[in-house]
Computed example of a mutant assay.
Amino acid sequence: MHQEHERERLSRPGGWRNRDFYDEVPRRRRLVEGTGLAAGVTFVTFFIMLLAVGHESDDCGLNCHDGDGILPHEAGHPWTGYQESWQWQAQWLLGVGSLAFAFAALIASTRTDWRRWTPLGLVLAVLCGAGWVAWVLLEPANPV
C-alpha cells in the first residue's frame, strides 16, 4: 500500500507544484508523545532533583564515621554512616538523571522527527525518580 501511494505521489503531472500537501498530514500525537505530559513530568522531576542534591550534600551530617574526623571509623555501621559511600553519589545520579531524561523527553516532544523518543524518555525519567524516592525511603537510618 505504501508503494502504491508513493508511486501515485511521484506520478502526478506537474511535479511538486501540483501537489495538494493534504495527503502528507502527520499522524496525531499519542498522549505519551504530548508536550503537556512531558512538561508535567519535567516539573515533578525538577523537585526530585532538588531533593536529591540536598540529600546528597547533607549525607550523614555530623554522624559520619569518616571524612571530617568527628567520629572515628568503626566497623559495622550501615553505609549511611560514611560520607564516602558510593551510595550517596548513586542516589544523586538517580535524582539528576530523572530530570535529564524528563528534559530530553520534553525536547523530543516538541520535534516531529523526535516524537518517537518521548515515551522512552518519560519512562526512564519516571523510573529514575521513583527509584530515588524508594531508595531514600528504604535507606537505613544514620547511626548515632
Rank of each mutant, 00 (worst) to 15 (best):
T112Q: 07
V41A: 03
F103K: 03
F43K: 00
F47K: 07
A39Q: 02
V53M: 01
V96K: 00
T110V: 05
L137M: 15
R30S: 01
E139P: 01
L122V: 07
H65Q: 09
G76W: 12
D66L: 06
E8S: 12
T80W: 08
Y82R: 04
A100P: 08
A52E: 05
G129A: 10
A108V: 12
L71Y: 12
W16F: 13
T80E: 02
R115C: 08
G95C: 05
V25C: 02
M1L: 09
G14W: 00
Q83H: 14
E56D: 07
H65Y: 15
R28L: 13
R29W: 12
A108D: 04
G69M: 08
A125I: 09
E4R: 10
L137C: 15
W16I: 13
L106V: 06
G131K: 04
D59P: 07
P78Y: 10
Q91V: 08
R17C: 13
G131M: 03
D66T: 15
L99M: 09
Y22K: 12
L93V: 12
I70W: 08
H55A: 02
Q83Y: 14
E139V: 09
D113Q: 05
Q87D: 07
H55I: 10
A141H: 06
R17H: 13
Q3C: 03
G97H: 04
N18Q: 00
R116L: 11
F43T: 07
G76C: 06
G67I: 03
P78F: 08
D68F: 14
